[in-house]
Structures are given as structure tokens and as C-alpha cells.
Nucleic acid binder design. Structure first.
Length: 416
RNA sequence: GCGAGCGUAGCCAAGUGGUCUAAGGCGCCUGUCUGUGGCACAGGAGAUCACGGGUUCGAAUCCCGUCGCUCGCCCCA
């Protein structure tokens, strides 16, 4: 038997309601904030991600689905959403549009990882990007949008963490200072962290080992080591967030793993999360477009994981509306009724009314059971008697009442 | 890449060496009700007990290997 590949999932009809719900809330909000939808290819030139996400990152080092196609090109299944949007911005000359350009997307994302709760090899993201505006008010707006999405979904008990990690101006000096600090305490670090000391000192901050955490509390903070421009940006952002009353927490340990982030970074986490708890992550990436060959263009965005949002909706017991069933099931008894039933169902649908034809190979009883099991509110019954008299019997399944109506009259009223 | 747990019908699951040609429940189908659902009752279909090898008179049950799934680490949505 074939199985879905490891780390991938079928999204069955009965699971769809959570996704439709998230999608509709997200699209409504995105439109409110003036975002337009963009869809980019599932695969891209491998180098797009190597250059943007960063050569030393886990994503590029060991998680990308990269293969050579039949023409000999190295292509990669999209491991994140931001770089393709930036590529599209450049490719289509969007710097000629009124700035900033605001876009949102829903797309599958692929990373070769060991699957576990809330982490898959294929997952889906809703994300937004704002390109061409460096003002901190844009940061505030994007963060507000992320926060409003959680509220609008009905996800309670989430926390918003914000930090500034500086830019190319001030970060190198800060990383040096951090390294210095940790080197002074190297004997107390866990084995992992000793390796991080060389590879990626920033990551020392979010280690979960108790002794490392304690050291992290006392470590120099990025937000205390910003250059003047970053400092101004950071304090403006906090002011704006206060102005729109978004309940954020400053988390000095928040760093994020992709190379392209600068200044503002943020995450949203459920209070009671499992291991893979982050449901939304984002930040500013002012150097990214330039590194892809464009002229210097600031950008900021975030992405949310659909699977993690759906998981949290279920865990939180959030009521999500069911997908509506067709209004009518057309039951039929006898050979003569079969074509008439087919026609009736077709005419109902032509009027925009949902209708399914039940299998006449079952008895009427079986067809009623089917209507009941499918949650269909009305059954239209056609048998020899009805055909002869040109009528149809309509049964209200919930009220358990039924009445006979002339066919034409029923069709006229059903359309309205 | 590393560590742990688990694999019995579509789903949940009993059984931990001897009528197990595998219990029960949900769901599905049929009938009681020959043109009327939900409830009840009765019946039915559906399982190479993950796969391969070994131990044994005898294996779903014990051992080894493989595969798969789940959870955790790393990292991330």
C-alpha cells in the first residue's frame, strides 16, 4: 500500500473547516490592511534561497528539497515564503508601483526535517510582506495585523514577543561582545552551546538548558547595543505599539534563525505550547532585496503556520462553523422517477441551490438515512405517484414534517 | 543527524505462548418498517495480528532484523 510521504498529510474533507476558517479570517484582514494576494511557484532556483536565507542556516545546510531537473537546473522546493516574494518584486519591477507594496500569500512550504507534533516536511503558511518602506510605523502595522489575526481567529492566551537585533551597522560589534561574555563562562555552557559560540553566537541566547538560560539572563542585550538609527527605530516602534494598545513583551533572547533579519523581530506563541510552539514569526529584512541584486529596499513581514494554527484552534476548543451541506437530497423510488429526480437535482443546482441525487438503488428508507447521515436539511421525494401528479414531496428533516407541492411551484420557491 | 515509545479491520481497542479459523465498541451495509431518517433490536461485510527471519510440539503474544508511525532534541511555521 502506498502511504503519503513521511512528514506530509492529507487534508481530509472533515478537516477542511479549520483551514477555510483561517483562510477567510486572514484574507479579510489582509484586504482591510490593503494587501494584495501573490502566488509564486512551488519551486525556485536553488540559489535564491542560498543567498537570501543564508548559507550557514539549518534550512540551507540540511533542510532544502533541492534537485536537478531534466534540463540540468538546480531547483528547490520553497522552504520559506519571503525570498520568492522579493524575487517577484524585483522581477516585475514593483519598485515602480506606489510604495510600499503590500502582499500576502498562502502556500505550501517544504523542509526536510524529522516530523513531530506541529512540524512537517510539507506545511502551509499564510504570510504577508511589506516592501519599500523602512518606517517603524510599518513594523507596528504588520505586528498589529499578526496580533489581530490571532484575536479574530479566537485564539486566546497567546503572547507576542518583540526584540530588535540591530543591523549590519551595529550587530557585528554586539555579536563580538556577546561572544566575549560567553567565552568568559565557557565552562558552564552545555556542549551544544560551546559549538554555537563559533558558529552562531546569537543562538546561545535561546538555549533551553537551565545553566545556559541563567547565563542568558545576564548576557549583554542586543537592544542595549544598537547604533543610533536602530535605537531610534526601536524606540519609535515601541511607542507605536503602545499607541495601538498591542500587548507585547520585549524578549531579549528572541533572535530567529534566518540570516536576513534586521532590527525588528517578533513571534507569537501560545501560552501552553508543545515543543513546536511558535505559531507566527517575522521581522524586518532591510538588506534582503539588495542581496538579491536589487537596489536597497527595506522590507518586513511575517508568516504563520496553518497546521499549527489549526492545531491550536482545536486545542483551544474554538468553535469553527461547519461547511454547509447541500440543502436538498433528491430521493427517488422506482425506475420512472430516476430521470425525473436527476432532472430535479440539476434544476435546483442551476438555480444555485445545493442538491445531491441519492442512490435510487436503495429503498426510500435507505435514502432517508443517507440524508440524515449527511446532515441535509430537506429531502425531495419523487416516486411514481408524484410523477403522475406532477408534484414533489418535500420533507423537512429537522421538523419531521412534509408537504406535497406542484413541481413548478416548488422550483420557483426553491430558487429564491 | 541523535534519543525514546509504539505498530491487532476505515477508527478506538481486548488479548502478553495453547480451540485466537482474534473479543468488544464506533462507523459502514441490510432487515424488522414491501414509499419515509434520527431510537431500538437482529444480521452482514471488513484483519496476510506492519514485514522478514528465529526460538518452540505450538507465536498476535518471546528474540533478532527491517519498515512505518508517534514523541522529544536540533531548528523552525
Amino acid at each position: 500500500m502506498f502511504q503519503a510521504p513521511r512528514g506530509t498529510n492529507d487534508l481530509l474533507p472533515q478537516d477542511q473547516k479549520y483551514w477555510r476558517y483561517i483562510e477567510s479570517k486572514a484574507v479579510d484582514l489582509a484586504r482591510q490592511y490593503g494587501f494584495g494576494r501573490i502566488d509564486t511557484p512551488v519551486f525556485e532556483d536553488a540559489n535564491l534561497f542560498v543567498r537570501s536565507v543564508g548559507e550557514g542556516t539549518d534550512i540551507v545546510e540540511k533542510e532544502m528539497y533541492t534537485f536537478e531537473d531534466r534540463g540540468g537546473d538546480q531547483v528547490t522546493l520553497r522552504p520559506e515564503g519571503t525570498a520568492p516574494v522579493c524575487r517577484a518584486y524585483l522581477e516585475h519591477g514593483m519598485h515602480n508601483l506606489p510604495q510600499p507594496v503590500r502582499m500576502y500569500y498562502f502556500c505550501p512550504v517544504f523542509r526536510y526535517e524529522r516530523p513531530q507534533a506541529g512540524r512537517f516536511r510539507e506545511h502551509h503558511q499564510f504570510g504577508v510582506e511589506v516592501l519599500g518602506d523602512a518606517d517603524p510605523s510599518v513594523d507596528a502595522e504588520v505586528i498589529e495585523l499578526a496580533w489581530r489575526l490571532m484575536l479574530s481567529l479566537g485564539l486566546k492566551d497567546t503572547s507576542l514577543l518583540v526584540n530588535s537585533i540591530g543591523d549590519t551597522e551595529c550587530r557585528p560589534a554586539y555579536v563580538g561582545e556577546l561572544k566575549n561574555y560567553y567565552q568568559g563562562h565557557e565552562s558552564k555552557l552545555c556542549a551544544e552551546c560551546r559549538q554555537r559560540l563559533d558558529r552562531n553566537p546569537l543562538r546561545l541566547l535561546d538555549c533551553k538548558v537551565e545553566t545556559c538560560r541563567a547565563l542568558g539572563d545576564e548576557a549583554p542585550r542586543s537592544s542595549d547595543n544598537l547604533c543610533q538609527a536602530c535605537q531610534d527605530h526601536w524606540s519609535s516602534l515601541r511607542g507605536y505599539l503602545n499607541a495601538v494598545a498591542i500587548p507585547y513583551e520585549i524578549d531579549h533572547r528572541l533572535v530567529r534563525g534566518l540570516d536576513y533579519y534586521s532590527r525588528t523581530v517578533f513571534e507569537i506563541q501560545p501560552l501552553e505550547g508543545g515543543a513546536q510552539s511558535t505559531i507566527c514569526g517575522g521581522g524586518r529584512y532591510d538588506g534582503l532585496i539588495e542581496s538579491l541584486g536589487g537596489r536597497s529596499t527595506p522590507g518586513i513581514g511575517f508568516a504563520t503556520g496553518m497546521e499549527r494554527l489549526a492545531l491550536n484552534l482545536e486545542r483551544g476548543g474554538v468553535e469553527v462553523p461547519d461547511e454547509p451541506s447541500p440543502k436538498y437530497l433528491v430521493a427517488n423510488v422506482g425506475d420512472a422517477a430516476r430521470p425525473a429526480a436527476l432532472e430535479l437535482a440539476a434544476r435546483l443546482r442551476a438555480n444555485g441551490v445545493g442538491a445531491i441525487l441519492s442512490s435510487g438503488s436503495r429503498g426510500l428508507r435507505g435514502q432517508m438515512r443517507q440524508a440524515n447521515a449527511l446532515g441535509i436539511p430537506y429531502t425531495a421525494i419523487l416516486g411514481d405517484d408524484e410523477i403522475e401528479q406532477g408534484v414533489v414531496m418535500i420533507r423537512d428533516m429537522q421538523a419531521s414534517t412534509q408537504e406535497t407541492k406542484p413541481m413548478q411551484e416548488f422550483l420557483d420557491s426553491a430558487g429564491a
